[in-house]
Amino acid sequence: MASLKDMRTQIGSVKATQKITKAMQMVAAAKLKRAQDSAENARPYAKRMAAVIANLARGITGDSAPQMLVGNGSTTHQLVVVATADRGLAGGFNSNIVRAAREFIAQQTAAGNKVRLITIGRKGRDQLKRQFGDKIVESFDLSGTKVLTIDVVAPIADLIAREFSEGRADVVTLFYSRFQSVIAQVPSAKRLIPADVDLSALEDTHGAVYEYEPSEEELLETLLPRNLSVQLLASLLENNAGFYASQMSAMDNATRNAGEMINAMTLKYNRKRQAQITTELIEIIAGAEAL
């Protein structure tokens, strides 16, 4: 059994850990506020963009429709984009996204499709590298970027667009964590190509006829690649907010656990200390009586 001194050291070390988790929780809470704000600020743009594309898509049918919108008719080459955080200590945040992606990959492989991967964020790459190392096209590490902007995601969107236009990918699916609330982040899949046109985003145009400059087809050709970056950016911003929310609750749990542990250990320590004092007293009294 551990000596009293050992127990003191142990309690001290748990207390030190608790201080760290407490600090991390507070830092995450502060960063969450900002991440949540920027995710919300990005929403109007993504929403308008979706409405405009839905509007354009409705008017275009048949052969003139761009392939990025309707797909190229094949599903054999699946490109999976996995967006995770660059850091851990956030509960199951990264693992949940990776698990969802793994299930999808297994499904596609079983269906006889070829799967290739792009990872965004260090944690996702680390977790997928061992199993799918040969399938990873490219890994993006955003740990050095402080603010996520459209310029940061542009190279990723360009790569995806190139993979599609050069025929190496037929369907592109993005895995990320949807920020539902501070306590709920849902690992989700979003289809990037063919574009997932949300007809509910469509505005009622009151039957008015639009005039397009240049033509509808040309407009779509320029807007679809842009939509790709916008969707990516919106997802990454949500991911970011989700990461801090997840880290905050993970660290809150850790702080509470450490508190419980300290209480239990202190109780045990005091009992042992008292037992030792009692033993010493008995020894002294016994010795005095013997005289």
């Binding site: 639009y210 005039e211 397009y212 400059e213 240049p214 407009l219 320029t222």
Partner: peptide, 12 residues
């Protein structure tokens, strides 16, 4: 230029 009540119009 766009004034109020402009006809529906889209452009890059």
């Amino acid at each position: 230029g766009v004034l109020a009540h402009h006809a529906p119009f889209m452009t890059t």
